[in-house]
Design a protein around this nucleic acid. Structure first.
Length: 224
DNA sequence: TAGGCCATCTGGTCCT
DNA sequence: AGGACCAGATGGCCTA
């Protein structure tokens, strides 16, 4: 585990940290980071309705914001306000006024796009388990994404294990209600109830695909 | 002071 | 054509 991961772990709240470390050991955070942009949904189909609701939330808030600012135009590009003129290219002032105003408009649009992205990341930070307190530094963007990914994978596995448990209990009920049923093996025996702690890893193996951005791997010890 | 993180600018590409 | 998306460059701020 590198220093960055240690810092990240420090910022994670007790229960979540316990869960991460107990379930997946020291490489819990690295686990998700060590793979590329695989699609967990293929292995862990989560509630599509919830995902759709979240997306709808985002789109409606975005539409509302567009409405507030009068749609496309904001004060930034209306008057050519320069947020960071230090970063203007030297050629900027050589261009005709029409091109300059077009450039400013594009800049403003890009700025809004990035703000939307940051808003979405804030929303993500708000729902993943780590210490939300003024004394704790906000999760970085990459840490937010990696932690969120691991959190989703853990939730999916918990759901799967819950399903197995329910199936097991239902099976037990059916068997014990029969007068000629053989005695059930004790709960937890692999032959009867194969809890699959390694299932997550194997799923990630199946889901992973080559060509992952190298930037993701610098945050974990599980380099390709 | 170096390194990490971030916001912004910019030009290119893709899509509608 | 215009907008969305992307990646590289740049400069500022903060922390170890």
């Amino acid at each position: 585990m590198n220093a960055r991961e240690e810092n990240l772990l420090k910022s994670i709240s007790g229960d979540a940290l316990l869960d991460l470390t107990q379930r997946y050991g020291q490489s819990a955070l690295a686990f998700g980071a060590g793979r590329g942009a695989e699609s967990p949904a293929r292995c862990y189909p989560l509630a599509p309705a919830a995902a759709a609701a979240a997306a709808a939330d985002f789109l409606s808030s975005r539409a509302a914001k567009a409405g507030e600012s009068g749609g496309e135009h904001t004060s930034d590009d209306d008057d050519g306000f320069e947020l960071d003129a230090r970063k203007r290219s030297p050629a900027f002032h050589d261009k005709p006024k029409e091109q300059r105003s077009l450039r400013l408009s594009i800049n403003a649009r890009e700025r809004r796009r990035m703000h939307d992205l940051n808003d979405a990341l804030d929303g993500l930070r708000a729902v993943i388990p780590y210490a939300h307190s003024p004394s704790v530094r906000k999760l970085s963007k990459i840490a937010t994404l990696l932690l969120a990914k691991n959190y989703i994978l853990m939730q999916a596995q918990a759901l799967e294990e819950m399903r197995r448990l329910v199936a097991y209990l239902n099976q037990g009920q059916a068997v014990t209600s029969s007068p000629v049923a053989p005695a059930l093996a004790p709960f937890g025996q692999a032959a009867v109830y194969p809890f699959t702690g390694a299932a997550l890893a194997s799923c990630a193996e199946k889901c992973a695909y080559p060509g992952s951005p190298a930037s993701l791997f610098k945050h974990c010890g599980d380099k390709p």
